[in-house]
Design a binder for these strands. Structure first.
Lengths: 207, 207
DNA sequence: TACATTACTATCCAAATGGATAGTCTATTT
DNA sequence: AAATAGACTATCCATTTGGATAGTAATGTA
């Protein structure tokens, strides 16, 4: 697996840029046009070289069947899009996608579980969970549905706002606890809407 | 944007499965073959319906130019593959990719910065940074190269192991500090190899 | 200098491909 | 009973596309 020449690298970069931009994989003629080649053969030569060097592969005869072989792509597991909400409405409707404010995309491996349709993300505001090492600005990934167990971190709807709390059971009764001495300690989880159980977290460094 | 019929949904699922499997987008005839249609027109009809319903789009006349429009895909920003190391060798060679143990894939938005070739990830072992809310098992994303500033979290190579420390400057001299009373407090950062500055973190819930 | 590699131009061809026309069959709705 | 929409067959055609052949020019490099 040797290195591509400069010209070959430019072709490779172009292909990757097109894929990243969501466009279909370029054809020989599209590549030729991009670089001003008057013959698509020139592009074909570069692709042949890239194939010899193990950087791309394609299925012979098939249109737009190029595939860029990145060393990391082999290791990469499936990527998932998780909707990110500012706060979740009470009903947690099935038709949640249109309301999403953003999107968190992570691979399964990093996030450690297989998201379902009931997986969503929230941006944490406030430091009520600092005792469990969740900070203001963190994005938490939650799963709606499963019954929380003692000690799980959950998102609950309190006064129309989603807030994170620790879910506890004391002699059979469920309670919610904030992990910060500044906040009221326990509150009954009876009428409260449990929206999801903590599954994963993404934090970015403060700039 | 109405809903697809059952047959249309099956076609849509097939297309997504193919893309997901890393294969090129299927052609009309490939779709027809998959479902046993004797005419590729049948597949074309389904695709037309899916287009009307706003679920896919394509560039007319172009081979394999289908694109599945997911509501979340619109919100999704560019995804990046960051190599994940167990521990980093001292030299931090340019040719780091073959040595990667895994791969963290996240979108730019979630991670909050634009990774470069010098971006990499490490799995944290130990609780030396618990005071900065970084736990055992967390994956940290770091950037190699930039001069750390006072208070930055950095990965440093100590005794052949990468460990996280807080970077401090006391009267001009750089020091490293563990954020856990169990660990020795300060050590001079003179001969130590600073491998990267903390940029982001991914944590998965303990099962 | 001779030779190999890279980087192209110019054409040609057959297969792959999207798209169009015309029609059948079958549920479901009106 | 009539109308409508979905699902499909059978063909035809113009482009698009990958691949092949043949050749030119520049740049190393042994």
């Amino acid at each position: 697996m040797s290195k591509p020449t400069r010209a070959q690298q430019r072709v490779l970069d172009f292909i990757q840029a097109e894929v990243h931009a969501g466009r279909p994989i370029p054809t020989l003629r599209e590549i030729a046009a991009q670089f001003g080649f008057r013959s698509h053969r020139a592009a074909a030569c570069h692709l042949e070289a890239l194939k010899r060097k193990g950087l791309i592969e394609s299925e012979p005869g098939k249109a737009r069947s190029l595939r860029v072989i990145s060393p990391l792509a082999k290791l990469r597991s499936r990527i998932l899009d998780i909707p990110l909400f500012g706060s979740i409405p009470a009903g947690f409707a099935r038709e949640r996608e249109p309301e999403a404010e953003g999107c968190v995309s992570v691979d399964i491996e990093s996030i450690g579980f297989r998201p379902t349709r009931n997986t969503f993300a929230l941006r944490v505001t406030g430091d009520s969970m600092i005792g469990r090492h969740i900070l203001d600005g963190d994005v938490v990934v939650l799963e709606h549905g499963p019954e929380p167990r003692h000690g799980d971190i959950v998102a609950a709807l309190i006064d129309g706002e989603s807030t994170l709390k620790t879910f506890l059971q004391r002699s059979g009764k469920p309670y919610l606890k904030a992990e910060n001495p500044k906040y009221p300690d326990l509150m009954p989880a009876q009428e409260l809407m449990i929206q999801g159980v903590f599954k994963a977290l993404i934090r970015r460094a403060k700039e």
